[in-house]
């Protein structure tokens, strides 16, 4: 039983990271109906911003110097950096193609993704970097042998808070209403006096800042980052978004958590050889029965 609890917490913290990245995929899909393949690499840039900011504020890669205040400051600063990056990517790469066929934007997204990955290798270096200790990782619980460390909890809690804030923005604010309107129909929304370009920029900023947060949380939990981590985590998060119903915010969060927990249980109880095979097998089965994903319905609010 304790093993089960431990595995569940492992899965939950991995799933939270998937969920945060998946939100960006799903929001951009909701608004523009295309998969932003560069999103996983924005996540990578988020992790690296955290790394360099921490170096700048003279954190050592060892313990010491860790404080909650600095950790939050670095989290917010990375979110700002990635917001600017997301905003720029949209303005330079996607906006000029707004009226081109969807395939053109898709290929451009792949191009942007490769650009970020390989410039990352050039600028940061290809060898993995040890992520600094932003927060001291203390053992906070011991349920009959199942040890729970503070960082796993931090990941889960911070992700939950960010998702709640996102939900508030989308459901309660004027901009959120505009986002939902644009996701229904661009033309009609613009006829209602909504500035489509602003809404799209805002969506990219929102999605990219969540990816940055995911990058920092990733670094906390798995302190080794390299310029290519965005590929596999981006792909998994994309799968999570489809699993939950692409275009649906709650679905992305749910899909991420399910994927993380399933992967952990497959590795822990069966074999990690089949981890991806089984995780993706489940995806196929769910999509066979519910082609729109778990929560994907036509009527549900989309962003």
């Amino acid at each position: 039983m304790t093993e089960f609890i431990q595995q569940f917490i492992n899965g939950l913290s991995l799933g939270s990271i998937y969920a945060l990245i998946a939100l960006g995929y799903t929001m951009i899909y909701g608004i523009l109906r295309f998969i932003n393949f560069a999103h996983g690499d924005v996540f990578m840039i988020g992790a690296f911003s955290g790394y360099y900011l921490a170096m700048l504020f003279s954190f050592t890669t060892f313990t010491g110097g860790a404080s909650v205040f600095m950790a939050v400051a670095i989290l917010l600063a990375s979110m700002v950096i990635c917001s600017i990056l997301g905003f720029t990517i949209e303005k330079l790469a996607y906006k000029p193609l707004r009226n081109s066929p969807k395939l053109t934007i898709l290929i451009t997204a792949i191009g942007v993704s490769l650009f970020l990955e390989y410039s990352g290798q050039l600028v940061f270096g290809a060898d993995p970097k040890s992520f600094p200790t932003l927060l001291e990782n203390k053992q906070i619980m011991n349920i009959g042998g199942a040890t729970v460390f503070s960082n796993s909890i931090v990941v889960i809690v911070v992700s939950a808070i960010l998702m709640i804030i996102l939900r508030m923005i989308v459901m309660k604010t004027k901009m959120g209403t505009a986002m939902r309107a644009v996701s229904f129909n661009h033309t009609v929304a613009s006829l209602m006096g909504i500035n489509i370009n602003r809404v799209i920029s805002f969506t990219f900023i929102l999605g990219s800042s969540l990816a940055a947060a995911a990058g920092i949380l990733f670094g906390l939990n798995y302190p080794k980052i390299d310029p290519l981590i965005g590929i596999i985590y981006g792909l998994k998060a994309f799968v999570a978004a489809v699993l939950g119903g692409i275009g649906n915010i709650m679905g992305a969060a749910l899909g991420g958590l399910i994927l993380g927990i399933v992967e952990t249980f497959v590795s822990g109880y069966l074999s990690s050889t089949y981890r991806d095979a089984i995780a993706f097998g489940i995806l196929i089965i769910i999509l066979l029965f519910k082609p729109t994903g778990l929560l994907g319905k036509k009527e549900i609010e989309k962003v």
Binding site: E3, Q6, Q7, N10, G11, L14, F218, Y222, K224, I229, I232, E263, T264, F265, V266, S267, G268, Y269, S271, S272, T273
Partner: peptide, 18 residues
């Protein structure tokens, strides 16, 4: 237990080992 080089999350396998 097994992993693949480049994996970042080993907690599932390690928990099983523990």
């Amino acid at each position: 237990q097994k992993y693949s080089a480049g994996d970042k999350d080993f907690k599932a396998q390690l928990t099983a080992i523990k």
